[in-house]
């Protein structure tokens, strides 16, 4: 079987729809996982009683169980306790919880390097703890943690392909679906690999820009 470009072109619209879902699910999950990361890291660094233990448990649980099991738990398990989410939001929830655990750790390191002295200075100027976190600590922690946050985000993007297992018609689902009908394996896998690669590149470029901006104050 030679590489059939015409076939691939004909599948363009279907692939595009899959791509769009992949982008949506990943973008929302990346943003939400960073929110979880910021909150979880703050809880850890401030050593808030009880919450602290909960965050540790959450991070350990996520990091030591397979993503696929987490995904099935959310999609098949939650409805049995009365929580029924759509395919799309099941996917978002599982990717968010999965990446959130890693973001907690990525951001925690940065947060710990925000010197105690800056906190005291902020408090002495009358900033509330929340404003200190939002205006000083979070931006500084994100700067330090950005490379590992990018890694986690790239993994999230790639792992969004797991969502085909629950039937969400994202990029990988579309490819597998077509292959099972048309047996054009090579064309489809080349296509989706190129697309994932392009998405990762876009994400990296975006992160590099952000890193440059956040690092500007520290270049003498």
């Amino acid at each position: 079987m030679e590489f059939d470009l015409a076939y691939l072109m004909a599948q363009g619209p279907a692939l595009m729809r899959g791509l769009w879902l992949t982008v949506q699910v990943s973008a929302i999950s990346i943003v939400l996982s960073i929110v979880i990361g910021l909150m979880g890291a703050a809880v850890r660094v401030l050593k808030l009683p009880v919450l602290d233990k909960l965050v540790i448990g959450y991070v350990e649980f996520i990091r030591n169980t397979p993503l696929l099991a987490q995904l099935f738990f959310i999609f098949y398990g939650l409805p049995s306790i009365g929580l029924k989410l759509s395919l799309f939001w099941s996917g978002v929830l599982s990717l968010t919880l999965w990446a959130g655990a890693y973001q907690v750790e990525n951001i925690r390191g940065g947060l710990e390097t925000v010197a105690k002295g800056l906190r005291e200075a902020a408090f002495s100027l009358g900033l509330t703890p929340w404003r200190f976190f939002r205006l000083i600590a979070a931006p500084m922690a994100i700067r330090v943690g950005l490379p590992s946050m990018l890694n986690t985000s790239i993994s999230l993007l790639k792992n969004s392909s797991y969502l085909q297992a629950i039937g969400l018609a994202e990029l990988t689902y579309v490819a597998i679906d077509r292959i099972s009908m048309d047996f054009r394996t090579i064309e489809m896998f080349v296509a989706i690999c190129v697309i994932y690669l392009a998405l990762v590149l876009v994400l990296s470029v975006f992160a590099n820009r952000l890193e440059n901006r956040l690092n500007k104050p520290f270049r003498v």
Partner: peptide
Amino acid sequence: LRTQIGMVFQDYALFPHLTILRNMTLT
């Protein structure tokens, strides 16, 4: 009280990610 009593530290503790002007206008 802290908005009414200023404090200056040994290590200056300027916010490194903000310009001098932002450091001064933030609070």
